[in-house]
Design a binder for these strands. Structure first.
Length: 564
RNA sequence: UGGGGCGUCGUCAAGCGGUAAGACACAGGAUUUUGGUUCCUGCAUUCGGAGGUUCGAAUCCUCCCGCCCCAGCCA
């Protein structure tokens, strides 16, 4: 990570931290944490939080813990833990051995609960789930006190211990904080702290039959770890009162402070874990790492680099406004990153065969071609040329539209890094009229240089020598949804799925230098976009490329339609 | 409806009483063997609305309007 990245722009959270540092509130310490629940893969919204928490720690010389908030065994699994660990690491962050699990604190948490009971601040409630809901009241009416609210400390202690021992079935009892059933904040109406759940936990197995609720576990986990700033999203705003209440009852000395910021939303995609799970489970995508998914794994497979994701997270800012960030900003960050580091190459996606009639049969020559037009340090490569080449079907038009600068009757174009090519005739299917191949001639005096007679050749197209071409499968990805807010009408986001979000092209033809592309490596196919050898399916000799993102395309704007 | 949060350009977002940063998007133009990159230029007389305080308000006060969150034994 570079220095400029670390010295991120200011936001209200950093403002708070800098102020706390100034007043020495936490003894000069800044300790944050990233606390995902291992019940799904990390997505770009999590990435924002990761960058925020780890970024702050780096910036202020503090620490950031990676904590798996695994207090509800249903849905949690090791697979998710592994993916989270891998993703945070891949994003470029290091927790320096401070990898924690809320489940490691179960015993401590239990003791805290006992302490609360002993202090008369918590009780075992034996109302049913439905009754508890009824007793809770509504936004306008206060709740009613549970008939079990005034059980003696001894009875509560006994019952709680027996809950732990497994004497009762799920739902028979819960542990509740004794706060205020008439509070205007519903969260404070004697919130549940522990529930019986006889479900094996992926880490603690069957050791525990009761599990702490988020509100109880999270604040205390923060306290246990000595977190100074507990950064979370806005929907926990209401819970802060409870966070503070629990800490107030049980923790002396330095106390963590919860700060909320607005979660990220990105247009044309979804960041709701529930809905992402649905996409995976129902097979609308090929898995959590499908390149169309907004997951870290998906973006990695798509070919996004962590640098681009970090840049995006830094550029969107941190505030409390409800937001919908335009996905074009993410794409911009990806292009900006790849433009600098991706070597250029030529590949033809939808091949049209071209015979160069005046090029000697059997002859082959090689061009020395730069790998990056603006960066000589990236070196050069050899690209073979011969009598038969492939060009993009789209780079030829029998009746060229206005402003079209490519090949057509009576026209010539520059073959990138090579000669000027002149159209002669087209061979067509006599029934359908489909253009089967082109016959052209080349100007041998234009080898990688301008025509000696000074004539202007406007268009430049890419090509691949047929004899040397490497066939490949190329996967074209587009936005997963075709509306900016697929979840706006919450019930049926599936109807907004973009049916054209994946198009598989084969065979495509690559220049030989791409033949053994390393899986995961990205390059630019000139004039087309950035592509990345698929990290699962690509093999040396049998490349499979994913389109990361197209190039900006001002022709598309002029012509009013896609060119790829 | 009770409580909480939030309203600054199409989208993010600075601004913290001294007279509206920046980015993306968009629109022009220059350079270009990628219709790419790069480089110029334009893009909020106005900050949800209405009052008020002040020499001066996006920033302070009052009222109003709109959007989001909370009634899981999820997090």
């Amino acid at each position: 990570m570079t220095q400029t990245e670390a010295s991120s722009p200011s936001d209200f959270i950093r403002e708070i931290i800098e102020n706390d540092l100034k007043t020495n509130k936490h003894g000069g310490i800044t300790a944050t944490r990233f606390p995902p629940e291992p019940n799904g893969y990390l997505h770009i919204g999590h990435a924002k939080s990761v960058c925020l928490n780890f970024g702050i720690a780096m910036q202020y010389g503090g620490t950031c813990n990676l904590r798996l908030d695994d207090t509800d065994p249903s849905g949690e699994s090791l697979e998710y833990v592994d993916s989270i660990i891998n993703d945070v690491h891949w994003l470029g962050f290091d927790w320096g051995g401070r990898l924690f699990y809320a489940s490691d604190y179960f015993e401590k948490l239990y003791q805290f609960a006992v302490e609360l009971i002993t202090a008369g601040k918590a009780y075992v409630c034996s109302l049913s789930a439905d009754e508890i809901r009824e007793y809770r009241g509504s936004f306008t009416e206060p709740g009613k006190e549970s008939p079990y609210r005034n059980r003696s400390v001894d009875e509560n202690l006994d019952l709680f211990q027996r809950m732990r021992a497994g004497e009762f079935e799920d739902g028979a009892h819960v542990l509740r904080a004794k706060i205020d059933m008439a509070s205007s904040n519903v969260v404070m109406r004697d919130p549940i702290l522990y529930r019986i759940k006889k479900e094996p936990h992926y880490r603690t197995g069957t050791d525990w039959l009761i599990y702490p609720m988020y509100d109880f576990a999270h604040c205390l986990s923060d306290a246990i770890e000595g977190i100074t700033h507990s950064i979370c999203t806005l929907e926990f705003d209401n819970n802060r009162a409870l966070y503070d209440w629990i800490i107030e009852q049980l923790i002396t000395g330095r106390r963590p402070r919860q700060i909320e910021f607005a979660r990220l939303n990105v247009s044309y995609t979804l960041l709701s874990k529930r809905k992402l799970i649905e996409l995976v489970d129902k097979g609308y995508v090929a898995g959590w790492d499908d390149p169309r998914m907004p997951t870290v794994a998906g973006m990695r497979r798509r070919g996004y680099r962590p640098e681009a994701i970090r840049k995006f997270c830094s550029i969107i800012g941190v505030a409390k406004n409800e937001n919908l960030v335009d996905i074009s900003l993410l794409e911009h960050c990806v292009r900006e990153d790849l433009n600098e580091v991706a070597p250029r190459a030529m590949a033809v996606l939808r091949p049209l065969r071209v015979v160069i009639d005046n090029y000697p049969e059997g002859q082959t020559e090689e061009f020395e071609v730069p790998n990056h037009p603006q960066n000589q340090a990236m070196g050069t490569r050899k690209v073979p040329f011969s009598r038969v080449i492939y060009i993009e079907r789209d780079d030829f038009h029998e009746n060229p539209p206005k402003k079209y600068r490519r090949l057509g009757p009576g026209r010539e174009v520059r073959l990138r890094n090579s000669y000027v090519l002149k159209y002669e005739r087209a061979v067509k299917n006599e029934h359908t009229g489909e253009v089967l191949e082109l016959h052209c001639t080349y100007d041998k005096d234009t080898r990688q240089g301008p025509p000696p007679d000074g004539r202007k050749v406007e268009g430049v197209i890419h090509w691949v020598s047929a004899e040397h071409a490497v066939p490949a499968e190329i996967r074209l990805y587009d936005r997963l949804f075709n509306v900016p807010e697929p979840a706006a009408e919450s019930d049926d986001f599936l109807k907004n799925l973009n049916n054209g979000s994946l198009e598989i092209l084969t065979p495509c033809y690559l220049e030989p230098s791409l033949k053994n592309a390393a899986p995961g490596s990205a390059c630019q196919f000139e004039r087309l976009g950035y592509f990345c050898a698929d990290n699962k399916d690509s093999r040396p000799g049998k490349p499979v490329f994913n389109r990361v993102v197209t190039l900006r395309d001002s022709w598309q704007k002029i012509s009013g339609q896609g060119t790829i």
